[in-house]
Write a protein that binds this DNA or RNA. Structure first.
Length: 216
DNA sequence: ATCCCGAGGG
DNA sequence: CCCTCTGGAT
């Protein structure tokens, strides 16, 4: 497929996504948060976990540790206990603690709004950094998670497996201002229709042009 | 058994 | 590239 065909495929995909899931990246984000810091923590917690479960533990977590400064003085065991049900709780607790200390020390307690600074924080990878950039700061950022990866491959927007490569390839197709919204709309479609185990191709509005239609 | 808005390390 | 970390839902 050449660049022109690929762009046409993207435009069709985009049309379905924007019609099916109207709204901004911010309005479509299901995580509960009141600050960049809280969004950062909620996104760290969302690894291999549903947003619903994250929202179940964050009220207690943010009441006890609302800011980087407060968390930097936390007892890691207490964080672990609160977030346990989100899974990977030991490493997540360590990361949230270390990240908070770094934010306090290196950024004066304020979560940075640049990708290269965000990814240097402990426990913050490209996906998490792009979520914070696009959802909180309204800056170009295209989070590539398991859903974006799976759908991009199925639809035919990429052949790569490496999420960073996929992110860079998608950046060529998606205009900067649409990147965050594109990602969250793909995620919603991945959850509701194009699920990992049993994709509902019959009900999918992309089934006319999706490369993997009917393949699974 | 397989998947959920991953990151870090080997 | 691979592996590990973890609990909950289906």
């Amino acid at each position: 497929m050449n660049d022109k065909e690929l762009d046409r495929l993207y435009q069709k995909t985009k049309k379905v996504l924007w019609e099916s899931y109207p709204g901004s990246a911010r309005s479509l984000c299901a995580l509960d948060f009141k600050s960049a810091y809280q969004l950062l923590v909620a996104t760290i917690l969302s690894a291999q976990c549903t947003d619903q479960r994250v929202n179940q533990v964050t009220p207690r977590l943010f009441k006890r540790f609302p800011t980087a400064e407060k968390t930097a003085k936390a007892n890691i065991k207490e964080i672990e206990e609160i977030i346990k049900s989100t899974g990977f709780y030991h490493s997540k607790a360590n990361n949230i603690y270390a990240m908070s200390q770094a934010v306090k020390k290196d950024f004066n307690g304020e979560v940075p709004d640049e990708l290269d600074k965000l990814v240097k924080l402990p426990g913050v990878g490209r996906k998490t950094a792009n979520v914070v950039l696009s959802v909180w700061f309204d800056k170009p950022g295209l989070p590539v998670d398991t859903h974006v990866l799976r759908l991009s491959k199925r639809i035919g927007l990429t052949k790569s497996i490496d999420p960073i490569k996929v992110e860079l390839e998608l950046n060529e197709l998606v205009r900067p201002k649409d990147r965050g919204a594109f990602s969250i709309k793909m995620i919603l479609h991945g959850r509701k229709v194009c699920s990992a185990r049993k994709p509902d191709c019959d009900r999918c509005k992309m089934n006319k042009f999706c490369e993997k239609n009917g393949v699974k």
